[in-house]
Design a protein around this nucleic acid. Sequence first.
RNA 1: GGUGGCGUGUCCGAGCGGCCGAAGGAGCACGCCUCGAAAGCGUGUGACGGUGCAAGCCGUCCGUGGGUUCAAAUCCCACCGCCACCGCCA
Length: 418
Amino acid sequence: MIDLKLLRNDPDRVRASQVARGDDPALVDALLKADEGRRAAVTRADNLRAEQKAVSASVRSASAAERPAVLEKAKELAAEVKEAEAAQAQADEALRAAHLAIPNVVHPSTPAGGEADFVVLGQVGEVPSYDFEVRDHLDVGEVLKAIDTERGAKVSGSRFAFLTGPGALLELALVNLAMARAVDAGFVPMIAPALVRPEAMEGTGFLGAHASEVYKLESDDLYLVGTSEVPLAAYHSGEVLESLPLRYAGFSSCFRREAGSHGKDTRGIIRVHQFDKVEMFSYVDPSDAEAEHARLLEHEKAFLTDLELTFRTIDVAAGDLGSSAARKFDNEAWLPSQQRWLELTSTSNCTDFQARRLGVRVRTPGGPRVAATLNGTLCAVGRTIAVLLEVHQRADGSVHVPAALQPYLGGRTELTPA
RNA sequence: GGUGGCGUGUCCGAGCGGCCGAAGGAGCACGCCUCGAAAGCGUGUGACGGUGCAAGCCGUCCGUGGGUUCAAAUCCCACCGCCACCGCCA
């Protein structure tokens, strides 16, 4: 939710943000109107209530003769208050709806436009070349007996896979490396629930436009999270925090319905319904949000560099941001089989938008203040495995293990076909 | 899943349908005392919304949502959560 004070003081800035995202600026005026309507309703209900309280308090001290008249008046007022409160509830709801309809105000540096309008911020490493015919990650993985998508489909359906043997070990190694790096960087490691209540899902903004992406357990009224950002953001919901920053690295399975992606990345494990991920999540003072965003990006880049991958960093355009994000950087690794960049990690600065919705505040000398939240992928395991297998493959079917990962794979320097 | 109990401010904890934003502690802040500290004493110490330049004033909040009543922390209902015991189970 955006700051209503900002809206009142500088509606043009919010309108401009809407335009940058390709959203309707008229929603801003609808919100302004709803805000005014609610304030009028609140004032009216408050005044009536004050009057009613006064009359009500006089009931006891009224003499027996006066009492019937006072009671009569009190009853009238009670009815009026009831009506005014209903009107206020309606106005509250109208405001809430209009409020939720507006995504976060984009950062001034965020490129305007849609998916194709990103700006490349830089590249690490050279696009690799191979003097043999490269296999895609599934071919490499099958030779190594590391990935089994056929049986994944047999057991669970399309877009499910088994990680087997070296594939399973590779996942654990990546998770351990990521967690070790996160701990070094001061993050508190967390194993987060993958099932959450509707409030957590709603509060993080995942039940908006992308609700169809989310798995729901109807009979239990629980959702499967698509990222541990959800439980980590909801972790401190409704709290006034004593001090910031708070940094967490959450490990959890992630579930995505991939409802709108039929026919896209159907081969292998690049796009699956279930994968594991280590996610960084920071709560900071709003004035530190930008610096924290840079920090998260550096952690991500360092991790990809450790894996000896070639990648570029892009500044995602406004129209391609999630509703909570003011700015987002993606790191895209080079995928040799398709000769293209593939999003591997991503970090978003949600400023105070998400925290306002979740009621996360910090104690400051001037009173509680809404915090800022940021998230960033440290390692989305499945996709990372896919890219590793492709990039580090050799002509003989073996795969080089990056030096940073070797300690977590029992010192193995390569994976070889069984 | 069954039975019973319980959910009050940063924490503990009291609370008769009106005088309760709520006793009393603890904690914290400031002051006094002290060479300094501790102890002791004194004062202060919630959030949200509305209104106002401001001091302030008004309203809301006692797990959540409804209901009864002129009036609800207090009565009724539902839900959520916690605890104990039983059953089941990794």
